[in-house]
Amino acid sequence: MAEHILQIIKKFNSKAVIFDLDGTMLDNNPYHLRAFKKYLQKIEREISDEEYNSRINGRTNRDVMEYLYQKKLSDEELMPFVEEKEGLYRELYKNDIAPVKGLPELLEILYKNDIPMGIATSGIQPNIDFMFDNIAIRKYFRSVVNSSHIKKGKPDPEIFLKTAGTLHVDASACLVFEDSIVGITSAKAAGMKVIALATTHRKEELAIADMIIDDYTELLD
């Protein structure tokens, strides 16, 4: 079962693996979308699935909220919005939370082969803790970088470059798993190889990735 993914890692000359979180480790973007729609009812703002995918998915909460409110927000203005929306997301998802198919098995293979792993997410720490508290995968990751650790969100490469640095691996030697177009663009700008998951976008929209899969079971054959 391990041979396929290890061959891919060798093919890409990768020494470390970095995962996005939303839509990549958890197939949770429908729940984020529901939370946004519920939150936006309060401000009489509507959002389409297309707008969510193009302007919100993969971006930091600051970028998202400033887009929705069409103005710059101070930290004091931003945090109540973020806490309310993310609280709605966790409440909606708590009974359904599950990893993308094949993820735990993939993590175990990489772990047993001593391949360093990190997370590079535009999300916030409470959402990361929410995942770790419900899915027993915390031990696999040597580094977790979230939106509070960076100045520029995806598609800027900062978050992936920072994660590579914390893993002590050159950016060009990192393999990234991503689902969003802005995330793939970010990782490619960092000089990394990317395997895209078609959990959020159609495969034809993910053509800039080096490889496209539906879920991790395709790497376990």
Rank of each mutant, 00 (worst) to 15 (best):
D49K: 15
G102K: 03
Y140A: 05
F12R: 04
R59K: 13
P126H: 03
D179V: 02
G118W: 01
S54R: 15
N61G: 11
F132S: 13
S172H: 06
N146Q: 11
I213G: 03
E105D: 13
I43P: 00
D27M: 04
K15T: 07
D129A: 14
A2Y: 14
H201L: 08
I109D: 04
K154I: 00
Y31L: 11
L197W: 01
F160S: 01
V144S: 01
N53S: 07
S172L: 04
L197G: 01
H201R: 15
L88N: 05
L88D: 09
E205H: 15
P30Y: 08
F160R: 04
Y39V: 09
Y111P: 03
L167G: 07
L106Q: 10
V144W: 01
D156A: 07
V194A: 12
I213P: 03
E91D: 13
E204D: 10
N95K: 15
R55M: 11
S180T: 07
L161Q: 02
Y89V: 10
S122F: 02
G183P: 00
L161V: 02
E158L: 06
E44R: 14
H168E: 15
A171V: 00
I97D: 07
G183Q: 02
V182L: 08
N57I: 05
A190Q: 02
F132N: 13
L220E: 13
